[in-house]
Amino acid sequence: MDVANMSPAEIRQLIRQNQLIRPTSGVANGFTQANLAILKKELAFEFLLFCQRNPKPCPILDVTEPGSAVPTLVAPNADLRTDLPKYRIYREGNLVDEVTDILKYWEDDMVAFLLGCSFTFEQALLKNKIPVRHIEENCNVPMYKTNIPCVKAGRFEGPMVVSMRPIPQKDVVRAVQVTSRFPAVHGAPVHIGTPAVIGIDDISKPDFGDPVPVRAGEVPVFWACGVTPQAIAMHVKPELMITHAPGHMFITDKRDEEFAVL
């Protein structure tokens, strides 16, 4: 299957039928991907406020009406209960299940948040001849908890999660320029270089995703990551929170360039 050039609707149909269960980097190229966080209505306002106060890790693309699984702004024919390759279920901050649909977990007072994903700007990096290591290695992007605190909102507080891509030294400035054009999907890096400065002791052991090699002449570059809500869930321990499995994103109908700035 040429998943790179399929339409979002075609990809979502394959996912719904459990025919595509894999990280979505490099899937439906040119279309914006999104992180997912689902909470009960009683926590939705506090989480919305948290996202507004932390736009780098949690840039909002869409929020559903309570009880609706349809993201009307970015994919009005989709169903967020079935259209991601893999979901994670957290209860009281503990990961209790990983599933390919959430039909049995869905409740009529749930609100779903779609947050921008850095997979969106990877095509822009590639077009600028900047390599993306996890695509080359056919694995998930490495993600790390940091010592960078998010701005507290209500009960929601905790550390930022970042994704890492090794960038050739000669391309670092260009990588910053390219990704800065996409503030709705994390934008410019939050850190460049020494991982220990942001609390990462061992870059070969990511908290989420897969490790990738950082080769001679390359610099580890870190972007804010939409997996941050999962770290927050572990910290805040809400009764129930549903997220995407790291790297297994929702494919919207929006093109990447719709979220770019000049």
Score class of each variant (00 low, 15 high):
Glu98Met: 11
Arg91Tyr: 06
Asp83Glu: 12
Thr82Gly: 00
Val74Leu: 00
Ala75Arg: 00
Trp106Pro: 06
Tyr90Trp: 14
Asn94Ile: 15
Asn77Glu: 15
Leu115Arg: 06
Val111Asp: 06
Cys117Leu: 09
Leu115Thr: 13
Pro85Tyr: 05
Gly93Asp: 12
Thr120Ser: 15
Ser118Ala: 14
Arg88Ile: 03
Leu114Met: 09
Trp106Tyr: 09
Arg81Gln: 11
Asp83Ser: 06
Leu73Pro: 00
Asp97Gln: 14
Leu103Gln: 14
Ile102Glu: 02
Leu114Gln: 11
Ser118Glu: 11
Leu95Asp: 13
Arg81Gly: 05
Val96Glu: 15
Thr82Ser: 01
Gly116Leu: 08
Gly93Cys: 10
Asp101Cys: 05
Val111Leu: 02
Asp108Glu: 14
Ala75His: 04
Pro76Trp: 05
Thr120Gln: 08
Asp79Asn: 14
Asp97Phe: 10
Asp83Met: 07
Tyr105Ile: 00
Asp97Val: 09
Arg91Trp: 06
Ile89Glu: 11
Leu115Val: 10
Val96Phe: 12
Asp79Thr: 08
Gly93Tyr: 11
Arg91Val: 12
Ile102Ala: 02
Asn94Glu: 15
Ser118Cys: 11
Ile102Ser: 03
Phe119Gln: 08
Asp97Pro: 09
Phe119Lys: 05
Ala78Glu: 04
Leu114Arg: 08
Val111Thr: 04
Pro85Leu: 03
Cys117Gln: 10
Trp106Glu: 09
Lys86Cys: 07
Glu107Leu: 03
Asp97Trp: 09
Gly93Leu: 06
Ser118Gly: 15
Glu107Ser: 10
Leu103Tyr: 05
Cys117Val: 09
Leu80His: 03
Leu80Tyr: 03
Met110Gly: 07
Met110Thr: 03
Ala78Asp: 08
Asn94Ser: 14
Asp109Val: 01
Thr120Tyr: 08
Lys104Gln: 14
Lys86Met: 12
Leu80Ile: 03
Leu103His: 10
Cys117Ile: 09
Asp109Ser: 06
Asn77Cys: 05
Pro85Glu: 07
Tyr105Glu: 15
Leu103Ala: 11
Asn94Pro: 00
Phe113Lys: 04
Phe113Gln: 05
Thr82His: 00
Tyr87Ile: 07
Leu115Asn: 11
Ala78Val: 00
Arg88Thr: 08
Glu107Asp: 09
Asp109Lys: 01
Ala75Thr: 07
Lys86Pro: 01
Pro76Asn: 15
Thr120Val: 14
Gly93Ala: 08
Leu80Ser: 06
Thr100Tyr: 06
Pro85His: 04
Glu92Leu: 12
Ala78Phe: 01
Glu98Ile: 13
Asp101Gln: 05
Arg91Cys: 11
Glu92Ser: 15
Thr100Arg: 06
Lys104Phe: 05
Leu103Asp: 12
Ala75Lys: 02
Arg88His: 12
Leu103Val: 15
Gly116Glu: 10
Asp108Lys: 06
Asn94Gly: 07
Ile102Cys: 03
Asn94Cys: 12
Leu73Arg: 13
Leu114Asn: 12
Leu80Lys: 02
Thr100Trp: 01
Ile102Lys: 01
Pro85Lys: 04
Val111His: 06
Glu107Pro: 00
Val99Arg: 11
Tyr87Cys: 04
Ala112Thr: 07
Leu80Met: 04
Gly93Val: 12
Asn94Lys: 15
